[in-house]
Every structure is written in C-alpha cells, then in structure tokens.
Amino acid sequence: MSADRGRQETHEERADRQWAELLQELRVAQTGVQLLFGFLLAVVFQERFTELVDVDRTIYVVTVMLGAATAASLIGPVACHRLLTGRRMKAETVVWASRLTVLGLVLLFCTMCSTLLLIMRVALHNSLALWLVGGMALWFVLCWFVFPVWALARDRRLPTEDEDEGERS
C-alpha cells in the first residue's frame, strides 16, 4: 500500500489555503465572541446590576476582562495579517495566527464558563449553579479539545515531508 502524499501544493499555496481555512474558522468564533461581549457590556447598565453581591460583581468584572482578552486573541490574526501583508511571511503569519486562535478558544472557554457562572448564580441563588457550570465546562472541554485530540491519537497516518507539523488535511 502506497503512502498518501496528500495535496500537491507549493509552500506558498499551502500557506494561502491554511490562511483561507483559518479565516473561515475565525469568522464563526468572532461573531459569537462579539455577541457575547456586547451582552456583557450591556449588563452593567441594567437596574438589577446594583443589587449584585460583591462576589457576583467580581465574577462580572473577571468575565468582562476575559471577554476582552478573547476578542483581542480572535481578532489578533487579522491585525497580524494586515501588518505583515506583502512581506512574504504568509507561512509564519499562519503559524502565529493559528496560535492566537487556539489561545482565543481557551479564553473563550473561560469566558463562557465565567458568564454561565454569573448567570446561574443570579438565576438560582444556590450551589446548583456551580454543578451546572462544571457540567457544561466538561462538555466544552470534550467538544473543543478532547474529541480533536482523540481523533489525532487514532490517526495512524504518517505526516508527509511537505506537511507542516500537526497538519493532516
């Protein structure tokens, strides 16, 4: 059985394809982050915000800061690309943009959990909130991290010499 050589593309073509794929992923993530961040920014202007106990206010502040960090990480690849365009650094840009995107996903996980914790604490006023958020955090970890890592572990193909480390498209 012959080894699958994958795509027959130049280094530049591969970088262009990877950039296009990354942009599609970022479009989805950025939209969700922007909606969530907008919601978080509006919360402080609600009348009930003044009724929050100190713990919930602290959770809110942490959540807003996490949301801002998430937005920065997921919008960062666009800034990288814009500042580096025309410098023949597409492959390097893809690597750094990919790293920022993974960081953004980790921060989004934290933002989502923090947001859920605040909402569940306000809605339930009991310790069930922590259990619900813990269960949902586990679900996020499974969907976003465990399943992809499991798929990689099950993939027995050897990378071809023209594939970047970790890529098997």
Rank of each mutant, 00 (worst) to 15 (best):
W150P: 05
V141Y: 07
T58C: 11
D164W: 09
K90V: 13
Q30P: 01
L124P: 07
F145H: 10
Q24W: 13
E13T: 00
L40P: 07
R57H: 08
A71D: 04
R156G: 15
L118S: 09
A97N: 01
A15W: 09
A3Y: 13
V149Q: 02
S114Y: 01
D4I: 12
E161A: 13
L118D: 11
G104Q: 00
T111P: 08
L23R: 01
L84K: 04
A42M: 11
G6Q: 07
R99N: 01
E92T: 02
P77K: 11
V62G: 02
S98R: 05
H81A: 01
P159F: 13
F37D: 00
R87F: 15
E21F: 03
A68E: 05
L130T: 08
Q8E: 14
Q8K: 14
G32M: 00
R121C: 00
C113Y: 11
A151N: 14
E161P: 02
A153L: 13
C143I: 09
R99I: 02
E13Y: 03
A123L: 13
A123T: 10
I75V: 01
R121F: 04
W144V: 11
T58F: 15
A151C: 12
A123M: 10
P148M: 06
L84F: 05
R48E: 15
K90G: 00
V43S: 10
A20W: 06
M112W: 14
E25F: 06
A137T: 02
L66W: 08
E165N: 07
R82G: 03
T93Y: 14
Q8A: 15
F145M: 01
Y60V: 12
L158R: 12
L74T: 06
V95S: 03
E92K: 02
G134V: 14
S73C: 08
L117A: 09
T115L: 14
A97E: 07
Q30E: 07
L74D: 01
S98W: 05
L26S: 08
R82K: 04
Q34A: 05
L100Y: 09
S127D: 14
M89A: 15
L26R: 02
Q30K: 07
F147G: 07
A29F: 06
T115C: 06
W144R: 12
L128Q: 11
F45A: 12
L35F: 15
W131H: 07
R88M: 15
R121M: 04
V64K: 09
V33E: 08
D162N: 02
T50G: 09
H125A: 12
A69K: 04
L116D: 09
N126K: 00
G104E: 13
V61L: 13
L66Q: 04
E13A: 03
W96C: 12
G67R: 00
Q46V: 00
H11E: 00
D56V: 13
L35N: 00
T101W: 03
F39L: 11
D155Q: 04
G134D: 02
P77I: 08
A42I: 05
G32R: 11
Q30N: 12
S98T: 03
A91Q: 11
F39W: 04
A151I: 08
L138Y: 08
D162I: 06
L116H: 15
L23E: 01
G86A: 01
R88N: 14
V62S: 12
C143Y: 13
